[in-house]
Design a protein around this nucleic acid. Structure first.
Lengths: 144, 144
DNA sequence: ACCTTATTTGCATCTCATGCGAACTGCCAA
DNA sequence: TTGGCAGTTCGCATGAGATGCAAATAAGGT
């Protein structure tokens, strides 16, 4: 997503207001590589702005996702994860510590896809591809 | 997953009991390509066995998944989806009608993965790869 | 047929997420 | 600078999905 300053301008030009709560969330999300859940972000935000509402965090995350400034993913761990990296990338998930990392993948366009039934060939128009690698991160590799 | 008859044997050999509820679910899941949610399966099961509990459906799905007879996925549509196809395959999801189809993909091992930071290279041991193609199925292609 | 043990079921509980409305405030306009 | 409209915040209620729990029930080995 864009910088807090750019988002401030973007929000105003859309008729949306830039509140202290939103500015804080802009800062917390910018360059954030932890793929936080709404709850996780709320915890961090609360430390810097006691009294901020979880509802407001959800609201702002929804707004940012709707503007294309955030991507959201369901990794099966329950809560939805948010990612300020909106470029073409994929994810690694450690099955041991649940850490999620961005990864860049070459060769996605060379994948050869065949449907379960030959009759379904060419019946699907792909708009996007999401790849999730599951395994063990370096830190968890030893601690089997 | 295996056939209802094979599952019957497998359950008994594990000290688990084969109840009418489980036999029904074995049948409903065998060769099922709809990637049903627990609720969806409960609806179908209820039609054939009025009074069956949603709790029992969840329980049996959890058991089967634990035995490796089912795979489960979170596709972001809220509820978890179950898939009796436990072979190596991936999924297509229609963004219009939410239909999920199994697809087989060649070239997965040829994907060239690079982490966000060069220092993280070779720091992750991949155990499995899940690919989700999002787009439009043939039936929804026209009805834009 | 009996008895041990697993299972079913309904209800309570929990998490994640969103709807709603009253109070509040950003920010443009005068 | 001030006034006021419109967008926001926030707390509470609500809803979906999923699981814990315990009493009643039933599978299946003996």
């Amino acid at each position: 997503m864009r910088t807090p300053a750019e988002l401030t301008t973007a929000f105003r030009s859309l008729g949306l207001k830039v509140t202290p709560q939103r500015q804080l969330l802009f800062r917390l999300l910018h360059d954030n590589t932890t793929h936080p859940t709404a709850e996780a972000l709320f915890e961090v935000a609360s430390a810097q702005m006691p009294g901020i509402s979880l509802r407001t965090v959800y609201q702002t995350l929804t707004d940012l996702a709707g503007m294309g400034e955030l991507q959201s993913f369901a990794f099966g761990g329950g809560a939805i994860r948010f990612d300020p990296n909106v470029g073409a990338h994929h994810h690694q998930v450690c099955v041991s510590c649940d850490e999620i990392s961005d990864v860049y993948v070459d060769g996605v366009d060379q994948l050869n896809v065949s449907p379960r039934n030959a009759s379904d060939a060419h019946s699907f128009t792909v708009a996007s591809t999401d790849i999730v690698f599951r395994g063990r991160c370096m830190r968890c590799a030893d601690t089997v």
